[in-house]
Amino acid sequence: MSRIFSRRSLIRVAGAAAAALTLAATLPVHAQSPETVRIGYQRSSTLIALLKADGLLEKALAPLGVKVTWHEFTSGLPLLEALNLGKIDVTADVADTVPVFAQAAGAKLVFFAEEAPSPSAQAILVPEGSPIASLAELKGKKIAVTKGAGSHYLLLAALAKGGLTFKDIEPAYLTPADGRAAFVGGNVDAWVAWDPFLATTQAQSKARILADGTNGLASYKRYYLTSEEFAAKGAPVIALLFEQLKAKGDWVKANPKAAAAELATLWGIDPAAVEVADGRRSYKVGAVTKNGLAEQQKIADAFLAEKLLPRAVDTSAVVIWQPASQ
């Protein structure tokens, strides 16, 4: 992965502030505003999926003369690789682990929004009739997990709680779709998944949750990111997107059945399962703070200890965008 990311030095110059944008670290000013914002997302990117479907973001950006293009990715790591390579301008939510891997590969990131913790929205699943009853019993088992996803850190934390290390299991690095197929097909002993994949698999296979992120195991926050270049020239766009995400998150929680029905149509899955999944996600969008990123260092250190990161990472070495109201 380190070959994919470029190693650019972080540019800091004065005068980057704009009326709609306040940064924790200054960025270069670009005189020409963007004509297009390229948004990368995943299938499970709930709020972005809803904004894409209702067209409200395009309408809000029209007075600025900015168009939107949408780019789907299978998981968070390819999404951030595309951001770092300049192929997209903004990402939908990615799990807290993903920026850690990106930083380890030399990426320079700008955080512009976060979702409050949702610890029960990811879990370790075992088949309904599995004899596995404790985390310690995962020893020697084949476990499907998506590399670099939030579920990857949950697995590390759960193994540590059970007195195990990553070397005590046989990991199967699979995409969510392939992980589900392997799990339902009986080709793995357990699967670490996140919603809505988690909820749909529970509903269809009666799989049992062995552990989720509650009780301090893994808070599971999700972050929205942009590039240095776009944060500098697209200040009004970022500010508008932040407000749209915040409003959409509030709407989902206030209208659970309507939101579930709309997402079920978009995703082609059962509305009841979507409602369960939405109930486990906070969808509370807010500004990112240095203190709020505290668990990022814990995540990075856990991956480094298991030799899953190529080098140590200072997770505080990122740029934070904040709305002018902050």
Rank of each mutant, 00 (worst) to 15 (best):
I4T: 04
F5R: 04
R7F: 14
R12N: 13
G15S: 07
A20P: 01
L23G: 07
A25V: 11
P28D: 14
P28S: 12
H30K: 06
Q32T: 15
Q32P: 06
E35H: 14
V37W: 04
Q42R: 10
R43Q: 13
R43S: 10
S44N: 11
T46N: 01
A49H: 01
L50S: 07
A53W: 08
G55H: 10
L57D: 03
P63Q: 08
P63Y: 11
L64K: 14
L64C: 12
L64P: 07
V66Y: 13
V68K: 01
H71Y: 12
G76I: 14
L77Q: 10
P78M: 05
P78L: 06
L79A: 06
E81Q: 14
A82W: 12
N84T: 09
N84S: 15
L85Y: 01
L85K: 03
G86V: 12
D89R: 10
V90N: 01
T91I: 07
A92M: 04
V94Q: 07
T97C: 10
T97V: 12
V98R: 00
A102S: 14
G106E: 03
G106K: 09
V110P: 06
A113I: 01
E114V: 11
P117C: 06
A123M: 08
I124W: 07
E128M: 13
G129R: 15
I132C: 06
A133S: 15
S134A: 15
L135R: 13
A136R: 11
L138F: 13
K139C: 05
A144S: 15
K147Y: 14
S151I: 03
H152Q: 02
L154M: 13
L155R: 13
L156A: 00
A157E: 08
L159A: 03
L159P: 09
K161R: 15
L164K: 09
F166K: 03
F166E: 06
E170V: 10
P171R: 09
P171W: 07
T175Y: 09
T175W: 03
G179T: 03
R180Y: 05
A193T: 11
P196E: 01
F197Y: 13
L198I: 09
A199G: 08
T201G: 08
T201E: 10
K206Q: 15
K206A: 15
A211G: 03
D212K: 10
G213K: 02
G213A: 06
T214D: 03
N215H: 12
G216E: 13
A218G: 00
Y224T: 04
S227K: 06
E229R: 12
E229Y: 07
A232Y: 00
K233L: 14
A239F: 05
L240F: 03
L241D: 03
E243H: 08
A247V: 08
K248H: 05
V252H: 04
K253V: 13
K257W: 03
A259H: 08
G268L: 09
G268F: 07
I269M: 06
R281D: 02
S282A: 08
K284P: 01
A287E: 15
V288I: 10
G292F: 07
L293V: 14
Q296G: 04
D301P: 01
A305P: 02
K307C: 00
L309K: 01
P310R: 00
R311H: 00
V313S: 05
T315F: 07
W321N: 07
